[in-house]
Design a protein around this nucleic acid. Structure first.
Lengths: 346, 346
DNA sequence: TGATGAAATGAAATCGCTTTCAATTATAGG
DNA sequence: CCTATAATTGAAAGCGATTTCATTTCATCA
């Protein structure tokens, strides 16, 4: 029971050569109906299924995709531990990959070469990049000639690959406008890093557009950067809001994670949400409607993002007859402002 | 740049046979210091690194481990989406695996045969089972002769494998006792399923022990089963607590996820936590200290659980000289009652 | 009926590595 | 200096598929 049967076992039982079995199984060459039936019967009888490792070696096709996540702090693991976003995304990837008979492997990106080696060592058929990476990584990866899907990328190189994203600027705008329409004028914007995260910057652009559109003053002191998305960084941001000399009445955060930390800090300091402060998050992760007050947020379906990205990747992998050097597709997924209890008219 | 160099390239450059290169790289046979240096130099020069696929085929060793999660509803994906627990666990696995030059693949378990085929197709070197599975799966897996680590398993077969768990009974006891000592007498126990989850049952045993020890009456009506760990199932449990004819003042839930849903439902129905109800959760997931009120809970380090399990697995995989048919090791990780703001003296 | 081209099949090479076993070289002992 | 023994190395056979190319078989048609 421990030993699986090989293609030769099947061939022998069916009285044909292993080549013929391969032909039948891959439908790659015409095989007479008679032999085909015989082969199929033997396959059935021996409970045969092909070995991915062997296929991988001979076809250079592993039925394996890799998901690259940024190596922000010490390890990809600690990254996951902190950020719900990646999990929901990966769930989507997993699901579609599995439907296509693919398996998924995750990797934190060290240097470009290491990453490139990983792809070659494992014979990966495709790659998904989620998050932000150094320029030279994209360069190195482009030499790999496997399909690549970028998520949330505003990089120069982005348009050379497949792309899945949302309208971050619009998200930032919608969140801010919602607060302004509720009468708020002093609105803090909490980002991880404006300098190094294009996504944050886009959302900030949206924030600025709303502020300007309603003729409110832009105040640099109303911007906070946390450098990390973990809850406790949000908490610190919340504390600094309380202590700040510039008084504000509302907050836009670039992620629900951050928003949750902020709310907690505010509450711990005796402030009431939404009476004293209105808060808007971003993402709508699963927990967001179960905290108190439930979180007003810009919803994006991260799970769906993972699914869409993987579908794109699968399609691209299966397009063996790819004519031009990949067709630069960009998919923009919808976002939606979800109004809950953390925001309130002034 | 696209083509990687093979062992033969290295061999040629070093003026030896590919066998010798293999010897050097695996340290499997004595090679003279002179040739060894030459080989190493060529490896360096050609930027050579071995191809996992080829190794896998010839050695039947893939440097790949699989993590099996239960297929509760439709897909493993939806499972992940709902339960933070798995994520934290997987993060731990990922981390240790990576440190050992292993990659990790996840799979929801369909039927045992499918699972067994997966292992063989991919040549997996080891397996981690996290959660509860049908008996016959363990049976099928035992035929595979690769190391297996079970998590949280109280199965019959459990003691034939490596094992990582916590003292669930004690956890249930500690949570309940804490509430009793605060003066609570009517304490609801919320589980997913007492019938089908041994973990829940153990925690319930602890609950009962505490109740009995303090001479309180055991009331069946104070037990709620949700059949799922998603937030909304907790929410429903919370609603049923409010509507129940038996009035209670405290709740023990088998997971923080559930507890969070319960709290939300209670609050939505105008109840105050902890004034009207004291709540204790289980796990201490990352979010638990950031909700309001912060959650009193029985902490287990799930991330560490993943790490420990994987370390065990790695050790077992590397023990090629395994003497007896695997050494039935069981590791019990500590738990700790973390008292926060969701519980209060009556 | 024999020639001809198409259809069906198989032998063997290949993918990149490991490993057995034999051959070669070095070292030591007499 | 010669042989016995140990230490190094390499040739070649796998591992389990795919795939090229040649061969056989079959229809078809003149």
């Amino acid at each position: 029971m421990k030993n699986k049967s090989t293609i030769r076992d099947v061939a022998k039982l069916a009285g044909v050569s292993s080549a013929t079995v391969s032909y039948v199984l891959n439908g790659v060459k015409k095989v007479s109906d008679d032999t085909k039936q015989r082969v199929l019967k033997s396959v059935e009888e021996l409970n045969y299924y092909p070995d991915f490792t062997a296929i991988s070696l001979s076809k250079s096709k592993s039925n394996l995709i890799g998901v690259m996540v940024p190596l922000i702090t010490d390890s990809p693991a600690s990254m996951f531990k902190k950020n719900q976003y990646y999990h929901e995304f990966l769930s989507g990837v997993e699901m579609i990959a599995r439907n296509n008979n693919f398996d998924t492997m995750i990797s934190g990106v060290g240097d470009p070469e290491e990453c490139s080696n990983w792809v070659k060592k494992r014979n990966l058929d495709g790659l998904i990049f989620v998050g932000l990476f150094p320029e030279n990584l994209y360069l190195e990866m482009s030499k790999l000639d496997i399909p690549i899907v970028l998520i949330d990328s505003y990089e120069e190189h982005a348009n050379r690959y497949l792309n899945v994203q949302i309208d971050d600027e619009l998200g930032g705008y919608a969140a801010t406008r919602h607060l302004i329409e509720l009468g708020h004028e002093k609105i803090v914007f909490v980002a991880t890093s404006l300098a190094s995260s294009p996504v944050d910057r886009k959302r900030y652009d949206g924030y600025k557009r709303a502020i300007t559109e309603f003729h409110l003053p832009l105040d640099d002191r109303l911007t906070i950067e946390t450098n990390d998305i973990a809850f406790d960084y949000g908490y610190k941001a919340g504390e600094s809001i309380v202590r700040s000399s510039v008084h504000c009445t509302a907050v836009v955060a670039v992620s629900d994670n951050l928003a949750i930390g902020i709310i907690k800090a505010l509450q711990d300091n005796g402030k009431r949400i939404p009476e004293d402060y209105s808060i808007v998050g971003f993402d709508d992760i699963a927990i967001s409607q179960y905290i108190t007050p439930s979180l007003t947020t810009v919803r994006q379906d991260v799970f769906d993002k993972g699914k869409t990205a993987t579908e794109l990747l699968m399609k691209s992998i299966n397009d063996t007859d790819a004519p031009s050097p990949s067709g630069t597709t960009a998919v923009e997924l919808p976002i939606k402002l979800i109004i809950r209890d953390s925001t309130k008219a002034l």
